[in-house]
């Protein structure tokens, strides 16, 4: 992140204030098995941190701990408040979309607002706004089964954005859509973020996606896994398709790749536990 860009961001007050995530000594055990141990992680306000790691390293579990969905040892704080249960202002986008098949696009997007106790006039005002923000205008009455995977995730994104979160937790949000759609959604998310920068913890198994989206890429690995590297992505924003062509993008991608692969190879050829 360039100094000027961060300076501008700090100076411009956005609707969503705060969103500072602090993770200290987070350890998740299932019985004798430790998924991750002693994870320390800081995500600043309006920063995007991409979390990568080999499959099974506990990226998604870590994200669920930050959301307060599952308990863990250690501490998760968002804006100084300890997270033990899901809290207002933190919203998650799910890998398999998590849309309710019995609700229309409109009702799915409205769900988070209704659960937050927002009054109905306000819901009626905001839902169409977020539906058109993600490009789903005209599909308000469609049911999820009538939508393509990409459109379903647009709906999942609108549902999360509608509650005006300080923190967005992204659980491999584009892993379940095809490659072209994935690329389109990545840039749309970046466009939305530019308009309203929100703190984001972004779990992905795609190295390119991590480097494209993140201000930092955090590599989680080992058994039990720990944070192995914290790589600052000093690519200019706004990022676009042109970002892929920058030599620096290739360098960073290689760096993340080699960090990950050294371990992946070791794991692949490891015999026994």
């Amino acid at each position: 992140m360039s100094i000027t860009a961060s300076g501008i961001r700090r100076a411009a007050p956005a609707a969503a204030q705060g969103g500072h995530i602090v993770v200290r000594g987070l350890t998740k055990r299932y019985g004798a098995l430790s998924v991750f141990e002693g994870v320390d992680l800081d995500v600043a306000e309006r920063e995007i941190v991409a979390l990568v790691g080999p499959s099974g390293c506990g990226k998604t579990t870590l994200l669920r701990c930050v959301d307060g969905l599952i308990p863990a040892e250690g501490a998760v704080l968002v804006d100084g408040e300890i997270v033990r249960e899901p809290r207002p202002g933190i919203a998650m986008v799910f890998q398999h979309f998590g849309l309710f098949p019995w609700k229309t696009v409109y009702d799915n997007v409205a769900y988070g607002l209704r659960m937050a106790g927002v009054e109905s006039a306000e819901i009626a005002r905001r839902v169409p706004q977020f539906i058109s923000l993600v490009g789903l205008a005209g599909f308000e009455k469609a049911y999820p089964y009538q939508l393509s995977g990409g459109m379903q995730q647009r709906c999942g994104l609108a549902r999360a954005l509608a509650v005006d979160p300080r923190v967005l937790l992204m659980d491999e949000p584009f892993a379940a859509v095809d490659a072209q759609t994935r690329e389109i959604l990545q840039f749309e998310l970046l466009r939305i973020w530019e308009r309203q920068p929100t703190t984001m913890l972004f779990v992905t198994h795609s190295i390119e996606e991590a480097v494209l989206m993140g201000d930092r890429v955090v590599v989680l690995k080992g058994r039990p896994s720990r944070i192995h590297e914290d790589i600052t992505v000093d690519l200019p924003r706004p990022r676009s398709r042109a970002t892929f062509t920058l030599p620096r993008f290739a360098e960073l991608r290689e760096r993340v790749w080699s960090t990950l692969m050294s371990e992946a190879k070791k794991a692949e050829f490891q015999v026994g536990p």
């Binding site: 959301d67 969905l69 249960e85 899901p86 809290r87 207002p88 919203a91 998650m92 799910f94 398999h96 998590g98 309710f100 769900y111 988070g112 659960m115 937050a116 509650v163």
Partner: peptide, 12 residues
């Protein structure tokens, strides 16, 4: 479980 997790996450 996905549905229940979404509900939980949105504090239903």
């Amino acid at each position: 479980h996905d549905y229940l997790e979404v509900a939980h996450s949105f504090r239903a």
